[in-house]
Design a protein around this nucleic acid. Structure first.
Lengths: 163, 163
DNA sequence: CATTGAATTTAGGAGCGTCTAACTTTTTTA
DNA sequence: TAAAAAAGTTAGACGCTCCTAAATTCAATG
């Protein structure tokens, strides 16, 4: 009746993804950051990466080695990190996804945990959902009046809850 | 300059949460499901829970023991699972969060991975963001014309991309 | 009430992603 | 160019959550 057989735990979905060879959330984080850091000079280094992500260099080394195995980047011991075409493409997509979510959250007024919410949500959104969100952003951009109406609606709401 | 020091990996945020004693995503999944299953009879059992979440009974046992330690539920070996007031309150909140996200995703047309996206996003949304999303849902409910406008906007979009 | 079968628990192992500590390599500096 | 400092690697440990296999307890049946 309730078709509840389909439910999985959070971990369960993560394991499913693994099976189909997808990037883990952490791999996505590293790749996205490498893409950012790479924009300036065409490469980045372990330390810069580790600092940007708030992890220890040893963690960065390990992950970079994994990403190199997956052909997302070129890396030799003690050397420089460069993206392959595959990694570059992936990084671009990850960054675009990130930015779409930032725009969306800003738009709806969810700004105080903006970075954290984005970082956490981005790994958990299907392509389809991302497309819908992107359209919503564009829609409101093209109809600023309605966006304003929403924002006023929010203001009224929060004043009411102060009573 | 770029204030990138604040970035963390997905794992990094998870570890931060642990430190402040929050529930892990998996704990939330179990609690939410126990809440659902409990609605009917006031209790549930290991097996029912495991089946509903697509995990092995041994995994469910372990987690239930952890949740019992955290005072979210009452459980004795080989017995029945019942929520404490704390667990009940938490479960209610988790389910409400789940439902809010479902409504939102439906509204924007992200329906083909509805369950999975919801399950994955729900653990990663701050209270503030959830509030904003909830308001957006209510806003569109009160202004069905604008919702329809958005949906038509989407239709136009997808037709364009078919060309 | 003894047996059988279902439900549950325990024990132990695996992968992920983090850490610390110790070691190695590279770079800088004097 | 030799010593010191910085950068990077390796090894080993930990917690989370899952699994399988084996042991245990409970419930049902004859």
């Amino acid at each position: 009746m309730h078709k509840e057989e389909q439910f999985r735990t959070y971990r369960g979905y993560a394991l499913l993804e693994q099976e189909i060879g997808a990037l883990t959330p952490s791999m996505e984080d590293y790749l996205e950051m490498i893409y950012r850091l790479t924009e300036k000079n065409g490469y980045t280094r372990i330390q810069e990466l580790a600092a940007a992500l708030n992890v220890q260099p040893s963690s960065a080394t390990k992950m970079v080695q994994r990403l190199a195995e997956g052909n997302y980047l070129i890396y030799e011991k003690y050397g420089v990190i460069k993206l392959t075409p595959l990694g570059d493409q992936m990084g671009k997509r990850l960054l675009a996804r990130h930015n779409t979510l930032v725009e969306f959250l800003k738009m709806i007024g969810a700004t105080s945990h903006l970075l954290e919410d984005t970082e956490r949500i981005e790994h958990n959104v299907s392509q389809e959902t991302l497309t819908c969100i992107s359209r919503l952003v564009h829609f409101f951009r093209e109809h600023p009046t309605w966006l304003k109406a929403y924002q006023e609606y929010c203001t009224r709401f929060s004043q009411r809850s102060k009573l």
